[in-house]
Design a protein around this nucleic acid. Structure first.
Lengths: 344, 344
DNA sequence: TGGAGAAGTGTAAGCGCTTACATTTCATCC
DNA sequence: GGATGAAATGTAAGCGCTTACACTTCTCCA
């Protein structure tokens, strides 16, 4: 699968501009990159030629010659859901202010695909990379190391991981929420999780719930667990399966808000009162939480702050002003209306 | 804002690999791009060197020398909402199958920013571009023309526009929906629109509603119109303003589902029964429609088909197998529960 | 066994830019 | 008016790759 750009209207090059403006290519280059170093008259002539020809620099050639791209990359698991959107938006805002272009790729939660994307972004000269979570192939990290590409892991915090990250403790957050659920008298607690394979956030959230159960002397292995794909409908289906069990769970913890919204919908479908007959909780605190009825009690993830700080950190690392750092942000419970006391 | 890659661990080049494998750079290049043209023993040696060095080709240099990138670009107005996600996903799936990488940029609904993104993607050597809607600067189109970059406009269909597009008729779809609303006896109809500046889809949807009113002898200018930003909360606020009017509208048409979800929420807040006291409709048919209560009656946009077909068209255009085409997809009404008869 | 053709490999010329360094131009001052 | 240095501009050497073309080995058959 290769192709050539049609040759009919040749793309103008620096040389074409130079010729038309009757200057050298060096002068044109300076006009574009350091205008103050060129006299006003020459500059005007060059700019006119640029306009007339519709010249735009060839990025590859530019990167090759200048060894810099002013481009950062971000690889997110999916664009389908809004989870990463807000954080990425904040990330991009900071970069735009600094004149850096952001390239976004999505891996579909597949580590192999992600490795390929990392390779591709590095080859494209990305100066730095934003990553989600710690789970990825060893080769991915090896590439990053070899090339010395500044990178930061977000949406997760692991003090033991040997790399920069700006995130929150998924396990602790879910443990805290679970403890609150237990405090309200619930004992039959079930969990709907996203696929945990290659997804440390999902895995840690499950672990968090289990550890909270264990801390109260309950058997973590007895907690019914549905692991399912990331969608509203899958969440509903999983909830349905869970509620067919006897005895029925009185609280269903969900690994993320989308699954929780699905569960909520299914509860309504089944005529179950939330939180009267069954409590449901989410994780992420995306806009969706306020849209559903009743509004979803969830764990608030500091999306925007995470995005902003990741951008600044990467900018500093690129500039040599930072060797990287590890920041643990808070992910507090966001109280709304879907968690109530266990039914009598 | 410039920087250099730290020089401590120099990035391996083709030449380093060649040296290590004791062959010429040409052979290494062939190993990577046309393995069958190299003997098995040599290939093994080269591949081993590639591994050991962690070599990855420099994209810029490659593009420069080969004049091809196998990269398509897409510029969407926003990533914040899910409207474009599904279509883009389908687009990407087709491209991935064909070995093409997708670069996504978002313009924040600002034509100037979009022009910049187009320039950037072209400079990066994008072989083809996916665009949303027809509204953009003349310079944007001029660049595309000059460089002969295959491009296709989606999410809109305009038979008169001089370019390829795969979309649907925003105006006609909204007119059809409005006619249905009128058929149910509604006469006091209001509209909540997204900002129409630089957004032809939004503008055409408003026009569609007005034309349906005019077709029934009603005064289109009398229709209350709230133009607001694209968010759930803005939708709620706009609905609130609309409902303070006397007499109150009995139906509120929304330019998209997110605004409609906001309206719906505000209606609940105000204790208004939907669709008993007021009907609300959306546009786009994103997942959200089934999440809200009651489920939203809306216009179904064929996201995935649009994405898939756009990908195929662009692939064909790049390969010279197509000079482009104009396809009008259907955008039928999706009946759910928020549109009812006008209250007596 | 020699020679033709295929297969494998090397040589070197760019691709379009940036930038160190060399050169020219020009204002300024004595 | 000529010397002086700053400002403006030009020259040319790469950046890391692909590929046309040339060259060297094989293979195989008459």
């Amino acid at each position: 699968m290769t192709s050539r750009r049609p040759q009919s209207k040749p793309v103008p090059t620096l040389e074409d501009v130079a010729e038309r403006a009757r200057v050298s290519t060096a002068t044109v280059s300076r006009c574009l990159n350091a205008p103050q170093r060129v006299s006003a008259v020459t500059r005007a002539r060059v700019m006119a030629a640029v306009q007339e020809l519709g010249y735009a620099p060839n990025f590859g050639a530019q990167a090759l010659a200048a060894r810099r791209t002013n481009t950062f990359g971000a690889i997110i698991p999916t664009m389908e859901n809004a989870i990463f959107a807000r954080g990425l938006q904040a990330f991009q805002e900071v970069l735009t202010d600094e004149g850096v272009t952001l390239l976004v790729a999505s891996s579909g939660y597949r580590p192999a695909a992600e490795e390929e994307q990392i390779r591709s972004l590095i080859a494209r000269g990305a100066d730095a990379l934003l990553l989600i979570g710690h789970d990825r192939t060893a080769e991915s990290y090896a590439m990053l190391e070899r090339r010395q590409i500044p990178h930061v892991v977000t949406w997760a915090f692991d003090p033991d991981a040997p790399r920069s990250s700006i995130g929150f403790d998924n396990r602790a957050a879910m443990a805290t929420l679970t403890a609150e659920v237990l405090d309200r008298g619930h004992r039959r607690i079930a969990f709907i999780s996203a696929m945990t394979n290659g997804n440390d956030r999902a895995r840690l959230r499950v672990e968090g719930a289990r550890s909270a159960l264990a801390a109260r002397g309950l058997d973590p292995a007895a907690m019914p667990l549905e692991e399912t794909e990331y969608s509203f409908h899958h969440g509903a289906a999983a909830f349905d399966r869970l509620m067919r069990q006897t005895p029925r769970p009185t609280a269903v913890l969900c690994g993320n808000d989308v699954l929780a919204a699905g569960a909520l919908r299914q509860a309504r479908e089944m005529g179950l009162d939330v939180p009267g007959e069954v409590s449901i909780t989410g994780f992420d605190d995306i806009e969706l939480c306020e849209i559903v009825t009743p509004a979803l009690t969830t764990v608030h993830v500091p999306h925007r702050e995470m995005g902003r700080r990741a951008a600044r950190l990467l900018l500093d690392m690129r500039g040599g002003d930072s060797a990287g750092e590890r920041v643990r942000l808070e992910a507090p419970i966001k109280w709304r209306d879907t968690l109530g006391p266990a039914p009598a």
